[in-house]
């Protein structure tokens, strides 16, 4: 079997774009999370909704900041 070159799963050139979009989405979801926290009272708050919003926001923020690191040359 001839040796095959290994490349990164996502082309390097996409990292800046991906990071901008994922961070933007992540920050919007984060904002909605905190708006929900601040506006709902203790009685009306639903834990499941908080956790789901938090999870979605952290997935986007996590990948967004990973791509930000990669795009700025910090190859983790």
């Amino acid at each position: 079997m001839a040796p095959k070159a290994i490349a990164s799963p996502i082309p390097d050139a996409w990292y800046p774009t991906l990071s901008v979009f994922m961070l933007a989405i992540g920050l919007v979801v984060t904002a909605s999370f905190f708006i929900y926290e601040a506006t709902s009272s203790r009685k009306t708050r639903s834990l499941a909704k908080e956790l789901v919003t938090g999870a979605v926001a952290s997935v986007f923020l996590g990948f967004g900041s990973l791509f930000l690191l990669l795009a700025s040359g910090v190859y983790v």
């Binding site: 708050r45 938090g54 999870a55 996590g62």
Partner: peptide, 28 residues
């Protein structure tokens, strides 16, 4: 294993998630 590549993003994600959980706990 290619799955090991997901370690770094998972760490970042769990870091952010902990932040949110801390917020939830504080509010509750």
């Amino acid at each position: 294993s290619n799955l090991s590549m997901l370690r770094e993003p998972l760490m970042l994600i769990s870091g952010f998630f902990l932040l949110f959980v801390a917020g939830i706990i504080y509010m509750h």
